[in-house]
Nucleic acid binder design. Structure first.
Ligand SMILES: [Zn+2]
Ligand SMILES: [Zn+2]
Ligand SMILES: [Zn+2]
Ligand SMILES: [Zn+2]
Lengths: 137, 137
DNA sequence: ATAAACCTTAGAGTACACACCAAGGTCAAG
DNA sequence: CTTGACCTTGGTGTGTACTCTAAGGTTTAT
């Protein structure tokens, strides 16, 4: 399968596939006489793995690690894989916590403001940002 | 106040201050004879405004908008300010939702894996990423 | 007078995940 | 045999918020 058809089937762009190849995430099975990339069954499976990993939040760098483990499963342990997963989960949790603080602060700010069409001279959002310390602590 | 002292007082780097100046977020009150930046009371207040806005999750681009409103309050309405705040809040909410889906999927994956020291040949995390579709749908 | 500590500018580099472009080669249909 | 759709490489651009570097000027203290 040439790159265009392969990309269509997976719902990604050809640019993405070339990018993944350059970054050692997915190498096409072979090349045609004209130098065209030729993707086979194995490439399809691997690309699906990559997309699923992306869907659960892994970055491309993390996916690369997972692939290296997958290629040589007997040289790696469940421990390693679970660690990667848990580390990622905890990182995501931290980010969620930070964003939740933002959300909370923004809600408080929004609730203070009347949102009317009058000039913003006395807007509580602006005065709060001007005057009050420790909005998030 | 010269840039170094000003930066120290606010807990930011001098690079950050020059960056903010270049991007029209904060211009020092004046320059000394030698061309050194000289920050005054107004700059201090404005920088505190910027840092508070950052603390509630606004991006520098958004803060720039807020500053422009703040400079000419009578030309803008509460409506505008509240809109910015609510839009940001909703964007943050979307991102939280996405990350929460990631967290959920990662937890499911982690729970499946024994995490032991044996080889990863039958690791449930890897086989799940290999085999199962629609992990997040 | 000289060293340390500060300041200036412009520009490059970082991470992430691609998107877009130019200039050219290849292949099938009509 | 030419048109159009596809493919190749290499390189640049995007957004975010800085950080770092180079090469040089200034201030302060000893
Ligand atoms: Zn109002
Ligand atoms: Zn208001
Ligand atoms: Zn196991
Ligand atoms: Zn396992």
């Amino acid at each position: 399968m040439k790159i265009g058809e392969f990309a269509n089937q997976l719902g990604v762009s050809t640019d993405t596939l070339r990018y993944y190849e350059k970054h050692n995430l997915l190498t096409p099975s072979s090349r045609t006489g004209a130098g065209y990339r030729d993707y086979g069954e194995a490439a399809l499976k691997q690309m699906k793995f990559i997309l699923r990993a992306k869907n659960v939040g892994f970055s491309l760098a993390e996916i690369k690690e997972l692939l290296q483990i997958k290629f040589k499963k007997h040289q790696h342990s469940c421990h390693e894989v679970k660690n990667l997963t848990i580390q990622k989960r905890d990182l995501v949790a931290e980010r969620i916590a930070e964003l939740t603080r933002f959300h909370q602060s923004l809600s408080v700010l929004a609730d203070k403001c009347c949102g009317g069409q009058e000039p913003a001279d006395n807007c509580s959002i602006l005065t709060t940002l001007e005057d009050i310390d420790g909005l998030t602590q």
